[in-house]
C-alpha cells in the first residue's frame, strides 16, 4: 500500500501542504477561486513547536480504531484507504476520540472529515505531496 510519509527533517513549516489539500478537495478547478477569502479546513495539518514542524494526516492504519469504533458505518476501508462517507456520518466523533494521531477532525457540517489520499477527488493522488516544495511529504510504497 502506498502511503504518505513525512520526513520531519525536511519540513519547512510552509503550510503549502494544507493549501494544496484544501484546494484538491474543493471541487474547484482554480486554486484562487477555491481558496480566496476562505478559512481552509485541510486534512493534513502542520504541527509546530519551537521551530520544529511536521505535517500530520491520516496514517491509514492497518488496524484502524476509527473504522472499528465507527457507530454509523460511515468509515470504511477501501483497498487500504480509509474512507469517510459524510452522508452516513452522524457526527458522534467517536473516531475523533479513537484516532491516535488526531487526524480526524470535525468539519463545518458537524460531521467528520479526513484524508482519503485524494482518491475521491479529481486529482487522484495526494496533492499535499505535490505541493510540498522540499520533498518532506512523500507518497511511497514501503511494504
Amino acid at each position: 500500500m502506498k502511503r504518505i510519509y513525512v520526513n520531519e527533517k525536511w519540513c519547512l513549516g510552509c503550510h503549502l501542504c494544507e493549501y494544496y489539500c484544501a484546494y484538491a478537495n474543493s471541487n474547484e478547478s482554480d486554486m484562487v477561486k477555491a481558496l480566496k477569502n476562505i478559512k481552509i479546513r485541510p486534512k493534513i495539518k502542520i504541527e509546530e513547536l519551537n521551530g520544529v514542524t511536521s505535517a500530520v494526516s491520516c496514517r491509514h492504519c492497518n488496524e484502524p480504531y476509527c473504522v472499528k469504533g465507527c457507530i454509523s458505518g460511515a468509515l470504511s476501508i477501501n483497498e487500504g484507504v480509509i474512507n469517510i462517507d459524510k452522508n452516513k456520518c452522524i457526527g458522534c466523533f467517536t473516531c475523533v476520540l479513537s484516532c491516535p494521531y488526531g487526524a480526524i477532525e470535525p468539519d463545518e457540517d458537524g460531521v467528520v472529515d479526513k484524508c482519503e489520499l485524494c482518491m475521491k477527488n479529481s486529482f487522484g493522488s495526494p496533492q499535499c505531496v505535490k505541493g510540498c516544495p522540499n520533498n518532506a511529504i512523500v507518497y511511497e510504497e514501503r511494504g
Binding site: 519547512l12 513549516g13 510552509c14 503550510h15 503549502l16 493549501y19 486554486m31 484562487v32 481558496l35 480566496k36 476562505i38
Partner: peptide
C-alpha cells in the same frame, strides 16, 4: 491581490 489567497507562505519563507 485578486490572486493572493493569504496563505502566508511568502511571509514564512
Amino acid at each position: 491581490q485578486d490572486r493572493c489567497i493569504s496563505c502566508r507562505v511568502c511571509e514564512r519563507q
